[in-house]
Simulated scan of single mutants.
Amino acid sequence: MSSTRAATLQDVADLCGISRGTASRALAGTGRVSAETRRRVLEAAQALSYSTNSGARNLRQARAGSIGLWLPRGMNFMEYYMNFAVGVVQSTEDRELTVSLIPAEFPAAKARALHVDGFVMTDVIGGDELARAILESGRPVVTSELVPPGMPEPTVALAGDHRTAMNRLLDRLRASGATSIAVVRPLIDQMWARLAADAAADWADATGITVRFIDLHGVPSAEELHSMIRGLHEDHPDVDAIVCLPEGLGVGILSTLRELGHAVPDEVQLVAYNDSPALQIVQPPISSLDLRAQDAGMRAGAMLISLIEKADDSVHGTEWFDLIYRERASTRPVSPAHS
């Protein structure tokens, strides 16, 4: 082969001793190709400096070569959503696909005109018209977390097991001596928040341990947070543990508790939803429930790619994944009676 001629798919196939079609499927990661054959084809392509023509392939397959990513309006600055987006991008790294972030202001009426092969969505908000239009677009949609009642169902949902995680978290607080627990919850129509709060209420009914809910509209200022925690302890001085569901407020609650003279964890234990580096560097470091945002993004992206490429007929319905409790110094050791 002349050194001036670019390698072709047939060259890759000839070097491996296989058909052109098998080489194509191996490079695309689709169809019934063994791992060994795929490895040989990738090595041959690298040796020959072969580069696939993704534009031509997408044209032949009537694909856009891109997946759309929808994030909740006004929340994409949060660490969870940034990590989720990174995970989605990582899922496409060997697929020659791009990820297109759908602007929150994009007109819902034009959702069907978006030049993407499918969508990944996370934390769909009930009543969001753009989210509704994407779910009704006729293209495959994978959502991270379930969609609220009244919204169209996605092709596949990847959902965190908030019920099991919340029960384990509250059991852990009770085992370390908690007798009255406050749960700070966001008033937003997203299923993860509903599932977590419902699980806490059911746990309280089953155990007889008092669980009180503090409802938040939006993100409070430092003064509002201080007033909220002060009011909680004035009205309910028996509260000896706080679980904070809204992202980013755990550090503020810790600071407020200390300003008000409450020792953490000796007087009040504290657990935050969604682990982050900030929770690990404060004193005391804050125990957390890790929602595994990057893992969720990678899995949701991989599921969508399987749907687009029709590589896995088992991808449907709802798939659940575990959340991880991170124990740190803001919670007390388990008492001997529960060990």
Rank of each mutant, 00 (worst) to 15 (best):
S2I: 00
R5P: 03
A6I: 07
A7V: 10
L15K: 09
I18T: 02
T22Q: 12
A23I: 00
A26S: 13
G29L: 04
G31T: 02
V33F: 07
V33L: 02
S34P: 05
E36H: 09
E36A: 15
L48W: 00
S51L: 14
G55M: 14
A56Y: 05
A64S: 15
L69E: 09
G74K: 00
G74A: 09
N76D: 15
N76A: 14
F77Y: 13
N83K: 04
F84P: 00
V86Q: 04
G87T: 08
E96T: 12
T98R: 10
V99A: 05
P107H: 01
L114A: 13
V120L: 10
T122C: 14
V124S: 08
D128L: 08
E129C: 00
A131K: 00
P140T: 09
V141H: 06
V141F: 08
V142L: 07
T143Q: 01
G150F: 07
E153N: 11
T155Y: 02
G160D: 03
H162V: 01
N167P: 01
L170M: 13
R172C: 07
A178E: 07
A178K: 03
T179M: 05
R185T: 13
A196I: 01
A197H: 05
A206K: 12
R212E: 15
V219L: 13
S221F: 06
G231K: 06
E234V: 15
A241N: 06
V251Q: 04
S255L: 15
E259A: 14
G261V: 00
A263N: 12
V264N: 07
Q269T: 03
A272M: 01
Y273C: 15
D275G: 05
V282L: 05
Q283M: 15
P284A: 08
S287Y: 06
D290G: 00
L291D: 02
A302G: 13
E309L: 06
K310F: 03
A311R: 15
S314D: 15
W320Y: 12
S330N: 11
R332D: 03
R332I: 01
V334C: 04
S335T: 14
